[in-house]
Amino acid sequence: MSKQSIRVDNLVKRFTKGEEVVSIVENASFKIDKGELVALIAPSGAGKTTLLMMIGCVEKPTSGVIYLGDEKVYDDKWLTKQTRKIRREKIGFIFQAHYLIPFLTVLENIILVPQTNGVSPEESERFAMELLEYFDIADKAHSMPSELSGGQNQRVAIARALANRPQIILADEPTAALDSQRSVSVVQMLKKIALEQDVAIVMVTHDEAMLPLCDRILKIEDKKIISSKIEGNTQETLV
């Protein structure tokens, strides 16, 4: 079985602003393996979130190829109409803020996606409780998000991202709203999840203190992707 979790070949994203064509990403190519925690860094407005959303089948690239696992999902066009199904089944999302559904309890927030995928209520609830115990918030299962602290809500959001047993987790600045101590704790948790669940995690971050905790850094520079390994300090420009 291939270790490849994400593969991007010659990905281009341009959009028009009035009559001007603005280029965000030009011919980006990279590969992320299962179990890897990769930091995606770039100056503000350089297209980190756009890249993340293209990998997450939310934003349509202009051209290029995207593989999720061994399945080619984009080749100058979406190869399936059901991009939302791909997101639901293969990808977990974590955001800057927790973005939990406020009218659902903690447990319901976590089981929403698995149950939509057809997992039985018993199985989805059992796994959700396991996740909540893992994150040490099982006692909050029936609380509303408004009754939890920011840190607890962020842990629920991570549990939600894991609830559909995804192949990939896309985290958009998950530590932005947290203090440094809690940020380290969250990233360490993500690293552990990547290893234990064999999940590829792409994490957009501005916080350089988090970089040593990652396996690799993808940096968007002049619309190109530069990959840096943390150990050995080797730097290679993929394209």
Binding site: V58, R84, I91, V113, N164
Partner: peptide, 9 residues
């Protein structure tokens, strides 16, 4: 928007 993003049909 969040529900659509996480794949709710």
């Amino acid at each position: 928007a969040i529900m659509k993003l996480i794949g709710i049909p």
